[in-house]
């Protein structure tokens, strides 16, 4: 059963109320310090969408979940990793390169991994009909991409820097700029969906999604690093973000 007290945050709460709830959640801490507590009252829509029972631990070296789906050259196209292409014109905003390695918890690079991303445009609007906040859509930017990691486990995307955007979690709620990431690993246990943030964003302390990861060191692992070596003159600013996939796999069991 859930450990934290049943608190619920009212509709139309102020940032001050959310701040107090985030501070209270920080004191409790999550059951797993590496991940968000699914029961996180400051993120109001989590209230009815988290299980009250703790997940049942499975330690079975023959579980189906120790393997997972495989992707290959037919699952990506050459243009898929450049979100600025594919339309008639250039998208608005600042061009960025986002690159990094996908590693397992032993530090081994994971080659041939499908990486999927999606993001808002430079004005902070998603190409999704349910995103109706008054910022312009960009006809030259739909905002999703895919690639496979290379032999060193490295992925790379060219995109534009997404804007921050408002949402209705509480009054004056704004998400810091972020890119959504989806990864598979070599086992279904390693499946991961997360968000990458940009260094130094002033919205970090106000955002209950990022702060649902209550451990500062863990939270820092969601923030990319500006990498001047990756920036290209008069073209793009470079960000580096490595991703470590947890969860056992058949190969890890074989190593034990």
């Amino acid at each position: 059963m859930s450990r934290s007290p049943r608190t619920s945050i009212r509709d139309g709460a102020t940032q001050r109320e959310i701040d107090a709830a985030m501070a209270a959640a920080d004191r409790v801490g999550p059951p797993d310090p590496h991940h968000p507590n699914r029961d996180y009252p400051p993120y109001r829509s989590s209230a009815l969408r988290h299980p009250r029972h703790a997940p049942l631990p499975v330690v079975d070296p023959e579980a189906v979940e120790l393997t997972g789906p495989v992707f290959g050259v037919t699952d990506v196209s050459a243009l898929d990793n450049d979100l600025t292409l594919g339309q008639t014109g250039e998208p608005a905003g600042q061009r960025i390169t986002v690159t990094g390695r996908v590693l397992d918890r032993t530090g081994r690079p994971m080659a041939g991994q499908l990486v999927e991303i999606w993001q808002a445009n430079a004005a902070g609007r998603y190409a999704h009909d349910l995103d109706q906040h008054p910022a312009p859509l960009d006809p030259n930017f739909t905002g999703f991409g895919r690639c496979l990691t290379d032999g060193d486990g490295e992925y790379s995307f060219t995109s534009i820097r997404p804007g921050a955007y408002p949402w209705r979690n509480h009054l004056n709620a704004w998400r810091p700029a972020h890119i959504h990431f989806s990864l598979f690993g070599t086992a279904f246990t390693q499946r991961m969906v997360t968000q990458m943030y940009f260094p130094g964003d002033p919205l970090f302390p106000y955002d209950p999604v990022l702060r649902s990861v209550t451990d500062q060191a863990a939270r820092d692992r969601l923030v990319a690093r500006y990498d001047h070596q990756l920036s290209l003159p008069e073209w793009t600013l470079g960000y580096r973000w490595d991703i470590v996939l947890g969860g056992p796999s058949r190969t890890l069991f074989e190593d034990r």
């Binding site: 991940h35 032993t106 739909t142 990861v213 470590v244």
Partner: peptide, 20 residues
């Protein structure tokens, strides 16, 4: 010490529908 800490998860959010 022998294992790297994993990247934390975050919600898929409301707008994955045009991507995934």
């Amino acid at each position: 010490p022998d294992r790297l800490p994993p990247t934390p998860a975050q919600t898929v959010g409301p707008f994955f529908g045009y991507a995934l």
